[in-house]
C-alpha cells in the first residue's frame, strides 16, 4: 500500500516538474495559456491514474493508441513518396546482397571441384575443403577472388603415413608407433571425421585410448598432414586453380590427445 502510494506521488512530482520545465522553456506568454491547458490535463491524468486503473485497465496504452491514431489520420493526408535517395539505397542493398550470394555460390562450387580433384589425384578423401573469398576492387567493379583454401583431411595415424607429421611429435606418437599394424587397417575403414564435431576415430581401439589419456600436453586442434600428401594436394590446387602455395592450408585433426 505504501509502495503504491509512493509510486503515485513519484509520478505526480515528476509530471509537475516536467510541467515547470516546459513553462520555463516556452518562448513567450502568448502560448502560455494553451500550454497550461495541455499540461494541466496531463497532470490531471496522472492524479486520476489510480482511479482510472481501477475502472478500466491500462490507460497509458489507450492514450498512446489514441495519439497514434490521431497522428496517422493527419499523416494520411500527405502522400508518402519514397525519395530518390531511398530508392537508390535500396538498389545498392539489393546489389550487394546479390553479389554476396553469387560469391557464396562460387565458393561452394569451387570447393566441390577441388574436393573431386584432390580425390582423383591423391586418392585421399578430404573431409572438407573451405574456400575463403576476398573482394578485389578493380576500378569501379568489385571482383571476387580466392583468398585462402583450407583442405582438411580425416585424421590419419602416424604409422600409416610415410613420414611422421611435421607437427611436434609427442609421447603418444612414439607410443603409437609401437602398436601393431592390425589396428591401423581397421581404423582406415572408418568414415572420415567431421571437422566441427571432432570425433576422434582412434577412440575405438583401446590401446590408443589409454595411451592418449596418459599424455595431455598437446593442446593443438590441428596438425599438418604428412609431407607427400601435403605436396600432392598443393600441386593439384596450384596447377588447377592458379593459387599461390602460401594461400593453401592442408591440415588434419590432431589425434586424440589434442582434445583431451
Amino acid at each position: 500500500m505504501v509502495a503504491w502510494l509512493g509510486d503515485w506521488l513519484h509520478d505526480i512530482i515528476a509530471v509537475i516538474m516536467l510541467a515547470v520545465c516546459t513553462e520555463l522553456l516556452l518562448p513567450n506568454k502568448a502560448m502560455l495559456r494553451y500550454t497550461r491547458l495541455v499540461i494541466g490535463l496531463l497532470v490531471l491524468l496522472t492524479l486520476l491514474s489510480p482511479l482510472l486503473r481501477l475502472l478500466q485497465g491500462d490507460i497509458t496504452a489507450g492514450l498512446s493508441a489514441g495519439i497514434q491514431q490521431w497522428e496517422m489520420s493527419t499523416a494520411q493526408r500527405q502522400v508518402k513518396m519514397p525519395t530518390l535517395a531511398d530508392i537508390q539505397r535500396q538498389a545498392e542493398d539489393l546489389k550487394h546482397k546479390q553479389q554476396q550470394q553469387a560469391a557464396n555460390l562460387t565458393g561452394s562450387t569451387l570447393s566441390k571441384a577441388m574436393e573431386t580433384a584432390i580425390v582423383r589425384y591423391t586418392g585421399q578423401t578430404a573431409s572438407s575443403v573451405e574456400v575463403k573469398l576476398k573482394w578485389i576492387k578493380e576500378g569501379d567493379v568489385e571482383m571476387v577472388d580466392m583468398d585462402t583454401v583450407t583442405v582438411t583431411f580425416p585424421q590419419m595415424l602416424p604409422e600409416e603415413e610415410a613420414a611422421p607429421p611435421r607437427g611436434s611429435p609427442t609421447a603418444s606418437d612414439v607410443n603409437s608407433t609401437q602398436d601393431g599394424q592390425e589396428g591401423n587397417r581397421q581404423i582406415e575403414a572408418v568414415e572420415p571425421v567431421s571437422v566441427e564435431v571432432m570425433v576422434p576415430e582412434v577412440a575405438e581401439t583401446g590401446q590408443y585410448n589409454s595411451s592418449g589419456e596418459q599424455s595431455d600436453s598437446d593442446e593443438q586442434l590441428w596438425q599438418p598432414v604428412n609431407a607427400e600428401l601435403d605436396k600432392q594436394t598443393r600441386a593439384v590446387l596450384t596447377e588447377g586453380w592458379g593459387l599461390s602455395p602460401e594461400a593453401i592450408i592442408v591440415r588434419q585433426p590432431a589425434s586424440i590427445r589434442g582434445e583431451k
Partner: peptide, 17 residues
C-alpha cells in the same frame, strides 16, 4: 518512469511554440 507519451507531447508543445 512517467509514460513516454507525456514527454513526447510536452516536447511537441515546446517545438510548436
Amino acid at each position: 518512469g512517467i509514460p513516454s507519451i507525456y514527454l513526447k507531447t510536452v516536447l511537441k508543445i515546446i517545438g510548436i511554440a
